[in-house]
Every structure is written in structure tokens, then in C-alpha cells.
């Protein structure tokens, strides 16, 4: 089992290198730094001097891959690739357009992102699994039918509607909680409750339907018939036998997103004015801050890969077949 986990860890290295190369290609090869400068400076201010100045300020004036003018290690290290892409492996993300250190900004913004995303995730998981389990328990009844109809309707509604509608109704019409903003300490809950609620509701439709399918697939298996033939009550059959087995496919789907919770949600954070990584990304996209977007792409991938490894580990916990291999 240990070898299995170590092997998964080792496999992550070439993946990370691949991600790094893709981001490099996307940001520096598709468009040259000159193009980026022209875009950022705007048509009116473009002069060769301005472009050069823009590149020097950001360190984009170096050669892309190999610096023929430098000597020794510097032929490789004194390049855009090494300075801007490879150094992300050690947590050096450079500076944003406003001159702030991106790494510091990221660590400061992870907290607020997590404050929204974690409760949304946990509460959402609880609500959807419970709902799906209830639907599967009452399968082939009117309750199940209308539950599925509700799920399909809910997943057909745009996520934007949940946010805009929720904000309008709860904050503006009923004035229950502030419409947006973020506070520290105990005061924070007033700001958190609405985005968390909306996050949970908007996720119910698709996840509950998916979990229900998984539960129903398990219910049809032979061992469930065996459990019934033992005379076990239906609740025991469900919670002891079905739920455990259904957990395995469900886990693959959810464990992988846990690390990504740090990244927050783009939409929720920008709508509710939460100073997390999601709104940071959106602001960077709108301001065309390439350094920040590049960093977020890399961090997102790292977190995803961590999620993959966590999934592999969680498998060994719930599935004895892997634990004993």
C-alpha cells in the first residue's frame, strides 16, 4: 500500500512539469511579450520605448528559453522560462501589476476563500447525500419521481440566477443579512450565511441526481439481495450495506475537489465582495494581469494533483480490496 501511495506521488512530478510547460507555452509562446505589452499599453501609448520599458519592469525582456549571452548556469536560469515559470515550483510567483507580491497576496486570501468554500462543501455534501439517499430509499414512488423532476429543474437553472435571485430576495427584499462584504472574527457569520446557503442550493440538483444513480446501481447488486435474505430491516440494508459500497464512487468525485476549496469560487466571491482567491482571479482577468492568472493556473493544478493523491489515499481507507493489495 505504501508503495502504491509513493508511486502516485512520484507520478505527480511529470504531471506538474507538464502543467508548467503548458502555462509557459500559453503565456509566452502563443503571444510574445511584445504583444502583451501592446495590449496592456493600449493603442495610443504604444511606442518601441514604452514596450521595452514595460518588458523590463516585468522581467519579460529576457530570452524565452536559452540566454545565449549569459554564461554558465545563467544561460538557463536568466531566461523568462526559468524566472517566470520554473520558479513557481518554489513558490515564487513574482509581482502583480499593482506591484504587490503575488505569493503573499495568495496566502492572505486563502482564509476568506476557505471560510466560504469549506462550509459550502460540507453542508452541501450532507444535504445532497441525505436527499439522494432518501430518493433512493423511496425509489419508484411518486416521491422519487418528483424529487428527480426537482433535481432536473434545479440543475437547469443558471448558477448566476441563484446568486442574483438570492441576493435580491434575502438581502434586498427581506433585509435579513448584508448584501455583500466580509468581516473578521465572530462577526463574519452574517456575511457568510447567504453565500454558503446559495452555494449549497445551487449544487443540489446535479449532485443529488448523480448520487441517486450511484445508490440505485448498488441497490440492484446481488449482495443487497443476500442482505435482505438475512431478514435485515431495509434501513440496515441501506445504511450498512448500500451506503458503504456507494461511498467508493462518491469519494472519487468529491475528495479531489477538497484541496481546490482553497481557490474559492469565482462567482460567489465576486458577487459577495469576499476578498478571497476567486475574486482575486476575476479581478486579474478583468485587469488582464497575466502574472496573477498564470500563478492561479499553476496553483490550481497543484491543488488538483494533491486532490488526486488524496483520492488515492482515501480509496485505501474505504476499499479493503486496495488496502490489502
Amino acid at each position: 500500500m505504501l508503495a502504491y501511495i509513493v508511486r502516485r506521488l512520484l507520478y505527480a512530478i511529470p504531471i506538474l512539469i507538464g502543467v508548467n510547460l503548458i502555462t509557459f507555452a500559453l503565456f509566452f509562446v502563443v503571444n510574445t511579450p511584445d504583444d502583451m505589452a501592446r495590449m496592456q499599453l493600449g493603442v495610443k501609448r504604444v511606442t518601441p520605448e514604452a514596450i521595452e520599458k514595460w518588458k523590463v519592469e516585468r522581467g519579460y525582456d529576457k530570452p524565452l528559453l536559452i540566454n545565449a549571452e549569459a554564461t554558465g548556469m545563467a544561460t538557463v536560469t536568466d531566461t523568462v522560462f526559468f524566472q517566470k515559470s520554473a520558479r513557481m515550483f518554489v513558490g515564487d510567483f513574482g509581482r502583480a501589476e499593482d506591484g504587490r507580491d503575488i505569493a503573499r497576496e495568495i496566502s492572505a486570501r486563502m482564509g476568506p476563500s476557505l471560510a466560504i468554500a469549506l462550509p459550502t462543501f460540507i453542508l452541501g455534501l450532507f444535504v445532497t447525500v441525505t436527499f439522494a439517499l432518501t430518493l433512493a430509499f423511496f425509489r419508484a414512488t411518486a416521491f422519487d419521481f418528483w424529487g428527480v423532476v426537482l433535481c432536473v429543474a434545479m440543475m437547469s437553472i443558471s448558477g448566476l440566477f441563484y446568486i442574483i435571485g438570492g441576493q435580491y430576495l434575502i438581502s434586498k427584499v427581506w433585509r435579513l443579512v448584508p448584501i455583500s462584504g466580509f468581516g473578521d472574527g465572530l462577526d463574519a457569520w452574517r456575511f457568510l450565511i447567504l453565500p454558503v446557503l446559495i452555494g449549497v442550493v445551487s449544487g443540489i440538483g446535479s449532485s443529488a441526481r448523480w448520487y441517486r444513480t450511484i445508490f440505485l446501481e448498488e441497490v440492484g447488486k446481488d449482495y443487497v439481495r443476500t442482505a435482505r435474505a438475512k431478514g435485515l430491516p431495509e434501513t440496515v440494508v441501506f445504511f450498512r450495506h448500500v451506503l458503504r459500497n456507494a461511498l467508493i464512487p462518491i469519494l472519487t468525485g468529491i475528495v479531489v475537489v477538497i484541496p481546490l476549496l482553497f481557490m474559492g469560487s469565482l462567482l460567489t466571491e465576486s458577487f459577495f465582495g469576499i476578498p478571497g482567491l476567486g475574486s482575486y482571479t476575476i479581478d486579474a482577468i478583468n485587469a488582464q494581469d497575466f502574472a496573477v492568472v498564470r500563478s492561479m493556473v499553476f496553483i490550481g493544478s497543484v491543488l488538483y494533483i494533491v486532490g488526486l493523491i488524496l483520492t488515492d489515499i482515501s480509496y485505501t481507507l474505504v476499499d479493503p480490496r486496495i488496502r490489502f493489495e
Binding site: Y223, A229, G231, P233
Partner: peptide, 23 residues
């Protein structure tokens, strides 16, 4: 349910799938 598995029990054709794999 009290009779099933008590006074009357059943064994199935496919032992491979008839046992719960995670218990």
C-alpha cells in the same frame, strides 16, 4: 423479516457477487 434468514434461509448461485465486498 423474522422468518427470512431465521426459519428459512437461502444461498445463491454467484458466491462472488452475493457477499458484500466491503464488510
Amino acid at each position: 423479516r423474522r422468518i427470512r434468514g431465521g426459519r428459512m434461509a437461502m444461498i445463491f448461485q454467484e458466491p462472488a457477487t452475493s457477499l458484500n465486498p466491503v464488510l
